[in-house]
Design a protein around this nucleic acid. Structure first.
Lengths: 122, 122
DNA sequence: CGCTTACTAAAGTACTCGCTTGACTATCTG
DNA sequence: CAGATAGTCAAGCGAGTACTTTAGTAAGCG
């Protein structure tokens, strides 16, 4: 429960790489070995291992080595912690969107705007 | 619509910083100026501006300058794109969890495990 | 008009990331 | 046992991040 902030850091950071997201996608349909995860990635195995380590440190995946192969599986709980952070923010801003919409409409370059108002940029 | 992959990269990367998440939290309850966003952050204003630029490049926030102040607001659509990527993976892995559970239970160090089997690590 | 406020832009720096190669260790397979 | 296979460890390197300071510009205020 402690330091959820750093946990979220690691989860979002882990998801910020397209190769790692591919790994998560693959693992979301069942366990796989490290080399299996790396197969579509045009990268050395050592590089793949490092991505796996990032994912595991974030809690997004679990792994265990049996014999010479390490089998990875997804940990939906970590995925959920990220999802619920996002949905909480999204739920909040829903309540304010009407007011925001009005604000943007007022300041936008629409018919009926203040004739010589201050410049708005971008 | 093109290159959603790089878009997701930027969104997750943007969310991977605790200061930027704080800004998103603040903005999810209504628009704010750049200096207002930076107030709780113990950082120079120039640093704050750079974080705002990262958030805007990711599509998570919008901003417009009126007079000398830039007013930022949240863009729930970008938040949703990240959320739905996650929930899609999470939905998928739900179907496979039973099988995974069995797998982990079998390979775990439980009573009834194979007596001299290969070592499992971590 | 002069002072303060709110940014902006550029340059520099320390640190982290993503990836490689090379050397090494186990574990299967024939 | 002699490979081949699966992964690990460490060093190194180029690119990117997260700041900083310095030096501006433009807008609002008295």
């Amino acid at each position: 429960m402690l330091d959820q902030v750093a946990d979220l850091d690691r989860v979002f950071q882990a998801l910020a790489d397209p190769g790692r997201r591919l790994m998560v996608e693959r693992l979301s349909q069942g366990p796989a070995s490290v080399s299996e995860l790396g197969r579509p990635l045009a990268m050395s195995l050592a590089g793949v291992v490092q991505h796996v380590q990032v994912l595991e440190a974030s809690g997004l995946i679990l792994s265990q080595k049996v014999g010479r192969t390490r089998t990875c599986s997804i940990n939906p709980a970590a995925l959920q912690s990220a999802e619920s952070w996002i949905s909480a923010r999204r739920a909040l801003c829903g309540r304010h969107l009407d007011r925001l919409g009005d604000y943007l409409a007022d300041t936008a370059d629409s018919p009926g705007t203040h004739p010589a108002g201050p410049r708005s940029e971008q």
